[in-house]
């Protein structure tokens, strides 16, 4: 089996498998969360909390008090750099948009490749900084579980291989493209079974927190 056949498998059956497992796992994950249920709030609320819930979904993406240099500065700066970088790379590189177009029929304008490239570098640097922080900060060392390193690696691999593929580093493009798509598939497969689910469940978490605080008249 040569690399061309590997790429073909990765772009075809492999992707189907990964998507299937991803959706399988996420469906389980979300149903498990929602079927647990919660008690209705019987207290006389100040508002329904709906608006507050939506506001919290949005506001927790912004730095507290609009100040990105808040303490702990390291986590804030590199946390934002990584997530923004990843977001731009994921959603604004033309080939990535084509995937969405093929799978969902949705597409939108792409950013120029060199711009995406800069964001990739930002994201890669930020991820390495965050890893270093995790390995050295006493607080984070204490909190970190092996899974934290696993999800770091799962996220880092597509970024690095994508960057290397674009710049033809080390290996032929076909190899790198295979590794890149393969690493994304690995990410998809393990996504529902690790804390990577936060990318989806944080909206549920923010919603409940915002809504419950909103009912008490606090914008959380």
């Amino acid at each position: 089996m040569n690399i061309e056949a590997v790429l073909l498998w990765i772009r075809g059956p492999g992707l189907g498998l990964a998507l299937g497992i991803f959706l399988f796992g996420m469906a389980i994950k979300l149903l498990e969360i929602f079927l647990l249920g919660r008690k209705k709030n019987l207290a006389a609320v100040r508002s329904s909390g709906v608006a507050a819930g939506f506001r919290t979904i949005l506001s927790r993406s912004l730095p507290p008090d609009g100040n990105i240099l808040r303490r702990p500065r390291f986590t804030f700066i590199f946390g934002y750099a990584f997530h923004i970088g990843l977001f731009v790379v994921m959603f604004f590189l033309a080939p990535h948009i084509e995937v969405s177009h093929a799978l969902l029929g949705l597409s939108w304008p792409a950013l120029p490749t060199p711009v995406v490239d800069v964001f990739t570098i930002i994201s890669i640097i930020a991820m390495m900084a965050l890893l270093w922080h995790r390995l050295t900060s006493p607080l984070l060392k204490y909190l970190t579980t092996p899974q934290d390193y696993l999800v770091w690696a799962l996220t880092f691999a597509p970024l690095l291989s994508g960057y290397m593929a674009y710049h033809h580093l080390l290996l032929p493009y076909t190899w790198l493209l295979s590794i890149h798509i393969g690493s994304v598939e690995l990410l998809l497969i393990l996504f529902p079974f690790t804390k990577l689910t936060h990318a989806f469940t944080l909206f549920i978490a923010r919603w409940y927190t915002g809504m419950m605080a909103g009912q008490k008249g606090v914008q959380s």
Partner: peptide, 8 residues
Amino acid sequence: SSCVNCGL
């Protein structure tokens, strides 16, 4: 399901 051990 959402905690990523960020320590904030």
